[in-house]
């Protein structure tokens, strides 16, 4: 595992894996991190992490209005990334992805930033990841939940869907999908506070779409969507019928890596 610990000083690494707070600390999201890393190892991708030098990108601080805290985080991260000469970043979190890709350039940090769904698709296209025929998800009804910060914010709708296609799954769309996809309720720093008063929580509303789709799996591409949808499904006691999995976990599972 020594190569994992190698920080960006090693110039020959292909990509820096930005793990993110959820990927590092959240129990459920750590499983996504581990699945993704197993795929990277499996494909022989050399990568580095910042380890303890990584700090929150500042996304929830900025979106709650705390621009000062956001910039403190952003500037710290940019200094670290630039010091290591990082050029290419992959992350499993659409919020980290959006912030580093779209918001760091204004503060002096310009990198090629790739979301892990796009990265996995690239590995398959380049022939570095060969999916087995008739894997775990063959013919299974799977729906995909669009993360706002991948879809509407960055126009990434197809890469995650193509992964599902490659897994031989039967993709069933929810009634609100792609550019019309309904938020899970976590964005805009909502993850870190109770929702305002209303009739329902947003994840309860989204859970209705999931149940209606009759899918047995929900593919997620964001650790926060993962939390929201898992909670929503548990609340209606459908956890035995519908399982929420990140696309990295699905790919790893189909390859018997996890």
């Amino acid at each position: 595992m020594s190569e994992l610990m190698a920080s960006g000083q090693e110039k020959e690494v292909e990509v820096l894996f930005w793990v993110g707070c959820a990927g590092s600390f959240d129990d459920r999201a750590r499983r996504i991190t581990k699945a993704f890393v197993k795929i990277l190892h499996h494909c022989g991708v050399s990568f580095a992490i910042l380890g303890q030098e990584e700090v929150c990108t500042g996304d929830p601080a900025r979106r709650s209005g705390n621009e000062f805290l956001f910039q403190m985080q952003a500037i710290t991260n940019i200094e670290t990334l630039n010091a290591y000469g990082v050029k290419r970043i992959v992350t499993t979190c659409p919020h980290c992805f959006n912030t580093i890709k779209n918001e760091y350039p204004a503060l002096g940090g310009t990198y090629e930033v790739i979301h892990h769904t796009t990265f996995l698709q690239g590995l398959i296209n380049d022939g570095r990841l060969k999916l087995k025929d008739g894997g775990e998800f063959k013919g299974k009804k799977i729906t995909y939940h669009d993360s706002c910060y991948l879809g509407r914010a960055n126009g990434i709708y197809e890469a995650p869907r193509q992964l599902l296609e490659l897994l031989d799954a039967e993709l069933v769309e929810m009634k609100r999908c792609k550019s019309r996809g309904l938020c899970c309720g976590a964005g805009g720093a909502q993850m870190f506070k109770e929702e305002e008063e209303g009739k329902l929580r947003v994840n309860q509303e989204r859970t209705k779409d999931i149940v209606e789709s009759k899918a047995s799996f929900v593919a997620a591409a964001c650790p926060f969507c993962m939390t929201m949808m898992t909670d929503g499904i548990k609340e209606v006691e459908k956890q035995d019928e519908v399982q929420v999995m990140d696309l990295a976990e699905m790919v790893a599972k189909a390859q018997d890596l996890i």
Binding site: F25, G51, P60, A61
Partner: peptide, 28 residues
């Protein structure tokens, strides 16, 4: 209050939750 807590965590630990930086790599 909850947002302030999150701000505090980000400021002191560099993470949205109250977790020490040393735990960032516990998944390894």
């Amino acid at each position: 209050e909850e947002w302030n807590l999150m701000f505090n965590n980000v400021e002191t630990n560099g993470a949205v939750w109250k977790m020490p930086a040393s735990d960032r790599t516990s998944w390894i």
